[in-house]
């Protein structure tokens, strides 16, 4: 009984140490992201080269309309407007800072924030999560806007 208890501690400690380590690494990385580094990461996850990400596909993803709640159609542009250099509005009417890094350098610099909003907004617009390639395409398009 005592032996079993002793064995339990080791994996817990190990997992704990790994978790703390990962938290530290992700915390230090989070502030240092750029649109290009995020694209590299998403391309790697998708198993393609960053050059194979497509701004054109990203633009299509941004503009394509999907059936949303109560028979209305919804797209990224519904809230972020047709021009991502312009501020958008949430459903409740609050301002959304522009999505394009050219108009808002804060965009795509924090991977946790980027992941949070892809998760939420892909579920809202597409009713599913976005793939790594779609995320990479999306940033590829937004970051080439001058």
């Amino acid at each position: 009984m005592q032996k079993a208890g002793h064995n339990m501690i080791k994996p817990t400690l190990l997992i704990g140490t790994i978790f703390i380590g990962m938290t530290l690494v992700s915390a230090s990385v989070a502030a240092a992201e750029t649109p290009a580094s995020l694209m590299t990461g998403y391309a790697a996850t998708a198993g393609i080269s960053p050059q194979d990400l497509s701004a054109e596909r990203g633009a299509t993803l941004y503009r394509s309309e999907h059936s949303g709640r109560a028979g209305t159609s919804v797209s990224c542009a519904s809230c972020h407007t047709a021009n991502p250099k312009q501020p958008g509005r949430t459903r409740v009417g609050k301002r959304i800072d522009p999505l394009a890094p050219a108009a808002n350098p804060q965009r795509f610099t924090d991977s946790a924030k980027v992941e949070k909003w892809f998760r939420r907004n892909c579920m809202d617009v597409l009713q599913r999560e976005c793939s790594a390639r779609e995320k990479g395409d999306f940033i590829a398009w937004l970051s080439q806007i001058k």
Binding site: K116, M123, D124
Partner: peptide, 12 residues
């Protein structure tokens, strides 16, 4: 919170 008045507002 993942269905917040129709919007996904999920948090960690």
């Amino acid at each position: 919170i993942d269905n917040h008045f129709g919007d996904n507002a999920s948090l960690d």
